[in-house]
């Protein structure tokens, strides 16, 4: 009886206030879709990091006769210098960061170069002497690049320490900026949603002030009086969350998993199933939203 009564009060409230409820649904829908998109971007960044970081390495290029870097003033690398670098790579300090390394001679470098740029005329004219020898180092934690860089860039015979990750980082920072913008927009929209829900509840409370007045008079409990209004906001916010979940899933499915993945088959993309992890988050935000705005309103306009 009690539950049925609260339910019927809630729905009669929604019916009376339909246009406001629809605007709450839409604003929550849009703002949570922004949140969902930012979530997808972050998931995609993580996915790509996992995918690429296993494949990228730090290259310690060694001096050759044509090097111009200051550390190569002594000309090409000597065997002693090369041994010193290798010893450093094997040392216990480095062991914490270095997972494995490989030596690449000038001949191997030439071979790789010619493979990669087989269609370039220039490839034929390049000789092994023009290319640097290098140590190819894969790191335990790719984020620790700076430590390795410091450890080796000062050493005699090292021309430059280069991190292939840097290329990816610029892509990731671009994606991060995009998700920050999405989150910023989402926050503005979420604030709008909170205020809109608060206004809706207030309007609803005003249009039903006779009923609530009588409820207070006869001693209805706080729950009985306030719950229908709270439920009204919650129902609207959850509807918005449901729509946003569908939109987020659709973006993951049709844009990322289907279209982008077919355009860039080499890259690891998130699947639409992974996007479903965002759904509980969106619903949680919607609930917090409704609760926050109810706190703003019920206390002031529906005191018992």
């Amino acid at each position: 009886m009690r539950f049925a009564f609260i339910l019927s009060e809630t729905f009669s409230g929604i019916r009376r206030n339909l246009s406001m409820v629809i605007s709450v649904v839409l604003v929550t829908f849009i703002s949570l879709t922004f949140v969902g998109s930012a979530g997808l971007l972050q998931m995609q960044i993580n996915q790509m990091k996992g995918y690429w970081y296993d494949r990228v390495e730090v290259a310690i290029f060694l001096c050759n006769d044509t090097s111009t870097a200051a550390s190569c003033a002594g000309g090409g690398i000597t065997d002693a210098q090369r041994d010193a670098i290798e010893a450093q790579l094997d040392s216990p300090q480095a062991a914490a960061y270095v997972e494995s390394y490989e030596y690449e001679s000038q001949e191997q470098a030439l071979e790789l170069f010619q493979q990669q740029y087989a269609n370039l005329d220039m490839a034929e004219s390049v000789t092994a002497e023009q290319l640097p020898e290098s140590f190819r180092v894969s790191l335990v934690d790719p984020e620790q690049y700076e430590v390795v860089n410091e450890m080796f860039s000062g050493m005699a015979g090292v021309e430059v320490v280069s991190d292939q990750r840097e290329l990816l980082e610029s892509l990731f920072s671009l994606m991060n900026i995009a998700s920050v913008i999405a989150i910023a927009l989402a926050i503005i929209m979420l604030i709008t949603a909170i205020l809109l829900i608060a206004t809706t509840i207030r309007l609803s409370a005003f249009s039903r002030r006779r009923e609530t007045g009588i409820m207070r008079l006869v001693g209805a409990s706080k729950t009985m009086i306030q719950l229908p209004f709270l439920a009204e906001g919650v129902v609207a916010a959850l509807l918005g969350a449901a729509l946003a979940s569908v939109a987020t899933w659709a973006i993951a499915k049709f844009f990322i998993a289907d279209w982008l993945a077919s355009q860039y088959p080499q890259t690891g993309f998130i699947s639409s199933a992974e996007a479903l992890w965002l759904v509980p988050l969106l619903f949680l935000i919607a609930l917090i939203l409704a609760a926050a705005s109810s706190m703003l309103t019920l206390r002031r306009y529906l005191k018992v």
């Binding site: 006779r210 009923e211 007045g213 009588i214 207070r216 008079l217 006869v218 001693g219 209805a220 409990s221 706080k222 018992v304």
Partner: peptide
């Protein structure tokens, strides 16, 4: 609310729905 359940109140302006 428990206090108010012990009280019935009637006003000059009826206050019906």
């Amino acid at each position: 609310p428990h206090l108010r359940r012990d009280l019935g109140v009637v006003f000059q302006d009826f206050r019906l729905l």
